[in-house]
Design a protein around this nucleic acid. Structure first.
Lengths: 245, 245
DNA sequence: CCGCTCCATACTGCATACAGTCTACAACGT
DNA sequence: ACGTTGTAGACTGTATGCAGTATGGAGCGG
């Protein structure tokens, strides 16, 4: 037992910390500080969880992770703290960290919350979008449609994420953006096993949405986004039901 | 310098960890594990931030906090990690933790997000409330009105929080509840300096809201909650403007 | 008088060490 | 055979140690 299930391309923490060269340039203002190891560990663990290397329910032994990532237990522990508050792992006192096991109920709740947040985001975006931003939205829309044409699932997912993220950016509400980002990543994880991007109809809805935003029609944009996200939610629901049979 | 600004009634971590009594009762199922120190540190720090002992922008020196709380730096660091992701402090690489300084913009964004989340919560609650729960809502309503009668600001705030929290509970969406809780605490902190509970009219709105929930009218409950929270937001806004003069 | 360089101090970030608890398994008794 | 108890190993939680960087001020030069 205790065979390391984790596979990692290269050990972390080999990046020669500190001493970033003797170039004491005149850059006294923007001092680019090196990100702490715990950040890298945090990202690496999320990646390992999302791509399924670390399975839900799995016990994460600190020493094991530490050796694998090439660091000590300390940065790992700090990363785990953060992962817990972000909902990726559960920390049980005196037992350690376990990859969070999402229930169907919780997954659906996440979609519900995401729907509400994104709907609000669309409303704000409609009120605040500049012409340049609308132009950029159409650009992303074209990218998405191109992906649909070529039946490029990867591309569809990417373009979809980019579009939604940009709408969030346009809404200029950092707090809202944080909450959306948090929910978004967990959604991607939970539904990864059954994720199949909606194709043509989804992008038709996107086009409607962009029109509403361009017209600064907040109510309409809000309505469309709500319908859009609820449809996605329904699609996931149907899919899960059908696969359960 | 380095005079400790923090005052704490009793040192933490004096609770004789481990060995929770020799009562090895038949409770083999629900093993009540002792919460790690970092939990206590986390709570203590939030309390210190909310009550103003730790001021926005203040540099939190780990060793200082540790000595005050009667623990080592380790649990403090782990608590700080969590506090950062929850938005209470900012961690600057190689510089440490600083109490987050909320901008007016951010504060208003928080109210905006809270409004959206609570509105959704009211909608769900209207669809799911049982008769017992409605009865409990009226009970809380009476408590609030009593506080208004006696002009008990403390009581008003408490009753208000209890009412909103219970509506969240009724909505039976744990993910939503988490996000609301997170936003809620930060709102209380940001607006603490100018917090003055709205009196009679707020509780009139609450009564309307409860009626809508009792009637299972989701749209109406949603509308009322939205108006309610937006009014609170407007009240804060006006107050801040008038105090800026 | 102002700016620069250099240095001492303080603090962070990471690593390691240690104490206590949990788990699993084996030996034992019934 | 089955349940109980004792015990060893593993892992967490906390403390301490150490290297490297940021900060503030003294001393020096302009």
């Amino acid at each position: 037992m205790n065979e390391p299930v984790i596979q990692l391309p290269e050990p972390l923490g080999s990046g020669k910390r500190g001493g970033r060269g003797a170039l004491s340039g005149a850059a006294t203002q923007r001092v680019e500080r090196p990100a702490p190891l715990r950040e890298a560990v945090h990202s690496a663990l999320i990646e390992l969880i999302i791509n399924g290397t670390l399975q839900p329910g799995q016990h994460l032994v600190e020493l094991e992770l530490a050796q694998y990532l090439g660091v000590s237990r300390q940065p790992v522990r700090e990363a785990l703290q953060r992962l817990q508050t972000e909902g990726w792992v559960d920390l049980r006192p005196a037992q350690g960290a376990f990859v969070h096991t999402p229930t169907e109920e919780e997954a659906d709740q996440l979609l519900s919350v995401r729907s509400v947040l994104e709907t609000h985001s669309a409303r704000l975006a409609a009120g605040r979008a500049t012409e340049e931003e609308v132009a950029r939205l159409w650009e992303l829309q074209r990218e998405g449609e191109a992906a649909v044409e070529t039946d490029d699932a990867e591309g569809m997912t990417a373009a979809n994420a980019a579009l939604h993220a940009y709408i969030t950016e346009i809404s200029r509400n950092a707090v809202l953006a944080e909450h959306i980002a948090l929910v978004e990543r967990r959604v991607r994880w939970y539904y990864r096993p059954i994720a199949r991007p909606r194709g043509h109809d989804a992008w038709a809805e996107h086009a409607e949405l962009i029109k509403a935003i361009a017209a600064h029609d907040a109510d309409l944009a809000s309505t469309i986004m709500n319908r859009h996200t609820e449809r996605t939610r329904q699609a996931y629901h149907d899919q899960r039901v059908s696969e359960a049979e």
